[in-house]
Design a protein around this nucleic acid. Structure first.
Lengths: 222, 222
DNA sequence: GTCTATATCTAGATAGAC
DNA sequence: GTCTATCTAGATATAGAC
């Protein structure tokens, strides 16, 4: 239950006010926005670790350091709180992707760096918990799963696809399909190794996968 | 709530006795094994569609056509029932994979057929629900996620990897890593298109992906 | 073994004081 | 807006008859 979360929804300047241990006396007038952030932060801790159905509003209130009724004054119900949380984290995640992809240099270097950066980001336990939660609730909240897909995934596919199309020397016939091969291979590797515990039963070094992947896609270069 | 499930746990000859509409009067002595199958079948319907935490033992009992206490006489508790169900479906799934991979003929034909067969199997709504459930509960039941990984995934990787090693003319440097590229690309495609609703926001024909995938892996043949 | 009935607990959501 | 206290429904698991 660390406060220094990479998925933190408290990215504004007043974020330290949300820490329960610092105590937020009523004499200090907190803006409604900060209380809302505080609730979202607490909700993230509980929802990510226990899933939607197993998360109680009581535990969220306790984790956020507010009363249950305060939650219901900011969000309509449990579904509303969950929806707001997933939307928020999805947007945060997309924005964290934006500046991190330079796409400059030799294609082999660019692609390897992209693969390693992608794997490093996905290997974060909290982000894995977020992915698991979106997949887990994709039946109950299909619109949230769709939001994640059409923002984060779509952005990744489009960016790499555009890069392929700007480099005809790579001789890639179908840019978007090849981009899906790239990210699909890497993401399913993390899913298999981390969520499905494959690292214990069928371990494989990341470099082996990356080498073969670059060998396949950049066959005329490597 | 169809009874003709591809994931049916009722593969024995007495399976029709488990249908509630046929009524199972107490005058007919059902063996304990059949009651157990009946319970597992009902549990599958509810767990797959609602997840672990949102599934109540009352609904399982109603779906299975037995009383709640009957469930507790066959399984220790809710976790025991869930564990038995996932283990059962995983084994069934593995056995359904066994005879379905001939690996005979021209490599291009074999690989394309393998890809199409794999996509067709994964596109089944009930199997997607099963995958979603295993991923969703991979934190609460890591041993079940591990079981699925080390049986179904391991078998797929090993089979294709062995095929690659038996065909040196394909010039595949790392057989197992390339097998992961193959299945990883296809499985993440289904996850993105079906679970994350990508088919609505970023549609792509299966053939495009398969063509590019075969083009990458069998570059010296295609 | 199987059923009906029940004990006990916890959930989401609300009422009313301040 | 925020808190404490509470209502009501539904959950797991068990007791006891047949």
């Amino acid at each position: 239950m660390s406060n220094s979360s990479p998925l933190s929804t408290r990215s504004n300047a007043a974020s330290d006010l949300a820490t329960p241990s610092l105590s937020t006396p009523e004499s200090i007038s907190l803006t409604p926005t900060n209380k809302r952030e505080q609730i979202l932060w607490g909700a993230m801790q509980i929802f990510l670790h226990h899933g939607y159905a197993s998360t109680s509003m009581d535990r969220v209130a306790a984790e956020a350091g507010v009363s249950k009724q305060t939650i219901y004054s900011h969000f309509q119900d449990k579904e509303g709180l969950f929806t707001a949380l997933i939307e928020r984290v999805t947007i945060d995640r997309l924005q964290s992707e934006l500046p991190a992809q330079p796409f400059q240099g030799e294609p082999v270097v660019v692609m390897r760096r992209l693969a390693e950066t992608f794997l490093a980001k996905m290997d974060d336990p909290e982000y894995l918990a977020f992915i698991r939660l979106v997949i887990a609730e994709s039946a109950r909240f299909p619109e949230l799963a769709q939001l994640y897909g059409k923002t984060v995934l779509q952005y990744a596919y489009s960016s790499l696809g555009a890069y392929f199309e700007q480099h005809p020397e790579l001789q890639i016939a179908d840019a978007e399909a090849t981009a899906r091969i790239f990210f699909g291979t890497l993401s399913s590797f993390v899913l298999a190794q981390e969520l499905l515990q494959g690292k214990h039963t069928m371990p494989m070094a990341k470099d082996r996968l990356i080498n073969s992947l670059l060998h396949c896609i950049l066959r005329n270069v490597v």
